[in-house]
């Protein structure tokens, strides 16, 4: 399969930092139809990388080629046609006053006539199962529903590439699973290439390939299975071990006996209450 994204020797420096590059000589390629996960600590540069690919950052060194088009200030809008991006905070990317207005936003920007917009908005909302919410205001939606609306906005403009910039990190576990299942389905139906930037182990596991970024450098590239086999090192790579497991580990380190096996947050809460009231 052909490479839909080709990044060569990409470097970027934020102006206000101490000169340490946010991206340091990064090269990688993404095949059409592939699902690529980018993992790394907060501040490792993974979001910066995604933004550079979408032309949202004016990098000076290196080249980015998307779908055969080299990214330059002249071609940036052409490149963005091919990429749909979903960000972390569901509220801060909801532009429209209602669900349908928001889905139409990308179409309005492309000066598509209203006659064509109406069926496309409707079809996109059908696709993500939000058609009954078309007239609702964002305040009446949950975080997961808002992210689904954001997905509908991308389905409406039909790009080739979907970038999820920690798009599930502010959702509850159920919302996360729903969102991932929806992305999986859309990816198969629309033959999308997916790049997901994530801390979530399930999301990284859905990928065909995982890139690990640390301090702006590409430090590892592997199949998810190879990464997960590294156990303890996952935390160093910037992947989230479930919160209850982290809490238990921290308690254990302080010499407190904790129940074995996996607990849900509620079970853990229950156990904490009981142990606190016994002391």
């Amino acid at each position: 399969m052909e490479n839909i994204i080709d990044v060569q020797h990409l470097s970027y420096r934020y102006q206000d930092t101490d000169g340490r590059p946010a991206l340091d000589d990064i090269s990688f390629t993404v095949k059409a139809g592939e699902w690529l996960a980018l993992v790394g600590h907060n501040g490792s540069g993974k979001s910066t990388l995604a933004r550079a690919v979408d032309g949202l950052l004016p990098f000076s060194e290196g080249t980015v080629t998307v779908g055969g088009i080299k990214l330059t200030p002249e071609t940036v809008w052409e490149v963005r046609e091919k990429i749909g991006m979903i960000f972390q905070n569901p509220d801060n990317q909801f532009v429209g006053a209602t669900v349908e207005d928001d889905v139409a936003f990308g179409l309005e920007n492309r000066q598509i006539s209203r006659a064509e917009m109406v069926p496309r908005v409707k079809a996109a909302l059908d696709e993500v199962g939000m058609q009954t919410f078309a007239q609702r205001e964002p305040g009446a939606l949950s975080g997961g529903q808002k992210q689904r609306v954001a997905l509908a906005g991308i389905v409406a403009i039909a790009p080739d590439i979907l970038i999820l910039d920690e798009a599930t990190s502010m959702l509850d576990p159920q919302g996360r699973r729903d969102m991932l299942a929806l992305v999986q389905r859309l990816r198969e139906e629309k033959h999308l290439t997916v790049i997901s930037i994530t801390h979530d182990i399930d999301e990284a596991a859905s990928a065909d390939r995982v890139l690990v970024i640390d301090d702006g450098k590409l430090v590892e590239e592997a199949q998810p299975a190879e990464i997960f086999a590294q156990g303890e090192r996952l935390i160093h790579l910037g992947l989230d071990v479930p919160f209850t497991a982290k809490l238990k580990q921290a308690l254990q380190d302080r010499g407190i006996t904790v129940p074995t096996g996996y607990q849900t947050t509620t079970e853990m809460e229950e156990w904490l209450w009981q142990s606190l009231s016994n002391t």
Binding site: R80, G84, F87, N92, N109, R110
Partner: peptide, 21 residues
């Protein structure tokens, strides 16, 4: 955040847009 998201969704200026509403 909003301005980044708007730009990523192809917003350039308010003059060259069609109207849904």
């Amino acid at each position: 955040d909003l301005s980044t998201a708007m730009e990523a969704r192809g917003y350039r200026d308010s003059e060259h847009r069609s109207q849904y509403r």
